[in-house]
Design a binder for these strands. Structure first.
Length: 108
DNA sequence: AGATTGACCGTGT
DNA sequence: GACACGGCCAATC
């Protein structure tokens, strides 16, 4: 478990996102220990081994924009899924002001 | 070992 | 607010 690659870390971190909340790629990358590796995170999602253990639909862009998602109807299914989880939406984007995962900002 | 790719991010115009 | 460019990081060919 010490030799886990960046991907493995992501696969272990993404499912930690609470329901009704979403995290940005850069955020996950930072939690992974490498802020700025947002691209590598995206790659991990694409290589997503199991949608059941890696809810990649909870990962959105920095502006809350739904990116990626090769499953179902793509971002369409992704949006519906997040919406179903109780995530706030602003048009086609997620309301990061209310639904962004604040695991490391939840010090209040 | 080197070069390329990728579901990104920030800044500038 | 939208479009264009460059930069970062890690995995893969």
């Amino acid at each position: 478990m010490k030799t886990q690659s960046f991907f493995e870390k992501v696969y272990t971190l993404v499912p930690k996102i609470p329901i009704g909340k979403v995290a940005t790629y850069g955020q996950i990358a930072a939690l992974c220990g490498s802020p700025g590796a947002s691209r590598a995170v995206g790659m991990a999602m694409k290589n997503n081994p199991d949608l059941g253990v890696v809810p990649c639909h909870r990962v959105v862009g920095s502006t809350g924009e739904l990116i990626g998602y090769s499953a179902g109807e793509g971002v369409v299914t992704k949006k519906k899924r997040l919406e179903s989880e109780g995530v706030f939406f602003i048009g086609d984007r997620v309301d990061l002001s209310k639904s962004q995962w604040a695991s490391f900002v939840d010090k209040a």
